[in-house]
Design a protein around this nucleic acid. Structure first.
Lengths: 290, 290
DNA sequence: CGTTGAACTTCGTAAATTCCTGACATAAAT
DNA sequence: ATTTATGTCAGGAATTTACGAAGTTCAACG
């Protein structure tokens, strides 16, 4: 049976890069740390640290152990926080991951129902879909908002729930939008430089289908992972871009951006992904209800 | 500081559903377990278990703790295995995740270089891309083979590396394939029922582009998450389907399946994803070299 | 309605582990 | 040679863990 106390000391040593610093940080004697780490090595049957110069270095086995320990103690920390939060009457802290493929404006609109929660402490993290999924599994996020469902594997510990399905509109810089282009929409897209989300996003797949169905031959001048970045490049005149209408009503009043048109039949779905196990965060439940 | 031994007992109790059973499983006295779990509750400041009938049940905080503990001890187990494996001269165990969007035949071909490793113990797990990604982060997999790259976030702990880019061929049941359809390929696809991978796979996106570029209007009769399942339905006569040529040479000799044609310009990329940290599994390195 | 028995709890004490003090050896960089 | 860091050995104090014995709770059964 692995001794987690020993592991903790080992982890601290490898993080601080030496027994002396680790002992100082832990407020303990150096010999103790040394002895305990040695115990760990004995119980695992392999050397984890080797001398290097006047310090130490990780062996291969040590590096493997380090990686795992990192995750273990990260989860330990998350556990304590989670327990503290659960029973604290209403929960005030909510960690949300916002996938890059999601319109930031839509995200804000979706989080609306809980923004007036008293004493709310909202922690927003951004990143790629996969990265956020990992954090969800490690329980350092309560909820992920994304444009793509996680496959609803029954024996898995994640649930995806479609929050909304919002129509998609096209916006562009004033330089490119005039009465002609608006009237001729969507045919006018063929004459305009187009910005699109990256190929692996669900919205992109829907749009490709739509182009095909409409028989549109378009000129793609840019592909973006992050929709906010895309809108910045669009406002600077690079091209026109699609975005979920949800929360984008005031995008037309953004300096430099005008509404080009709304493509019927193309929707951006927004999903909430959260852990199946355990209690659900009350704020997550509130979001799901509307 | 969280006491992992207390946590371990708590976890065992919640898994076994009672102190008595947990004590039996641990070979210890019931009182000990009870006292230790009580210590944990005291240090966390919240009750984790509550009486229910003549047994016990998890409180909300307890459920949160349970979830985290599950991951923690899973990683602890993985840590021990990893350390055992590292120093055992050459590593013999390799845990590979095979993404559903990947042709099983191609996967076998890619793993070829290491299949002759003496004393190899290959652990193959299948699943959705996201699920496997999570297992990679939890270090219960060494490597994931997939048709889609994980975004190469520089400050992230995962690396994707494109292993091969293999052309895609179409196969179908004898009932649908004859000299006419082969000669008229790819135009003949318009007259054939088509099976395709699910919309979120990278191959699907490439194919949609290809259909569009060729001006093909096709009839999709099935979409599959799993390419192996797709080939089974195809062999039974449901339709024709695309598959990476890599490792598929002998697919033509599979009872009931014939080669229809090869679409130039459409490639299935296959990526290897693995953890950036620590030493890389020697077998993973061997795979990357070729 | 009281008894029964399974399951959890409390208490006191024995055993094991953890941790410190202090002294000393080794190895490498300046 | 000096400084700085790791590695080792001992003895003893402090803490944690484990268990026996006795007590409490609660559903089930006659």
């Amino acid at each position: 049976m692995l001794n987690y106390r020993h592991l903790y000391y080992f982890w601290m040593v490898s993080k601080e890069g030496g027994f002396a610093r680790a002992a100082a940080r832990l407020g303990m004697a150096v010999q103790t740390i040394s002895a305990q780490v040695r115990e760990l090595e004995k119980s695992l049957g392999h050397q984890l640290l080797k001398p290097l110069g006047r310090g130490i270095a990780l062996t291969e086995a040590g590096q493997a152990a380090q990686n795992h320990a990192e995750g273990i103690f990260q989860m330990g920390k998350a556990l304590v926080e989670a327990v503290q939060d659960t029973a604290k009457g209403r929960m005030t802290r909510l960690s949300v991951g916002l996938s890059d493929d999601l319109s930031k404006l839509a995200a804000h609109a979706l989080l609306g129902p809980i923004l007036d929660t008293p004493d709310l402490r909202l922690v927003c993290r951004e990143g790629g879909f996969e990265r956020l999924q990992v954090d969800l599994a490690l329980h350092s996020l309560d909820l992920v908002l994304t444009g793509r469902p996680s496959p609803d594997n029954p024996n898995l510990y994640l649930i995806s729930h479609r929050l909304v399905s919002s129509p998609v509109a096209w916006y562009g810089p004033a330089r490119l939008i005039d009465k002609n282009t608006v009237d001729a929409f969507p045919r006018s897209l063929e004459r305009l430089p187009i910005l699109l989300p990256m190929g692996h996003s669900a919205l992109r797949v829907s749009l490709d289908h739509w182009f095909h169905a409409q028989g549109l031959r378009i000129k793609v001048v840019g592909e973006f992972e992050d929709s906010a970045l895309m809108s910045v490049f669009a406002a600077r005149g690079l091209g026109v871009f699609p975005v979920s209408r949800l929360g984008a009503d005031d995008l037309g009043s953004t300096p430099g951006l005008l509404l080009l048109g709304c493509c019927e039949g193309v929707n951006e779905d927004i999903y909430a992904i959260f852990s199946r196990h355990g209690r659900h965060h009350p704020l997550v439940q509130k979001l799901l209800r509307g």
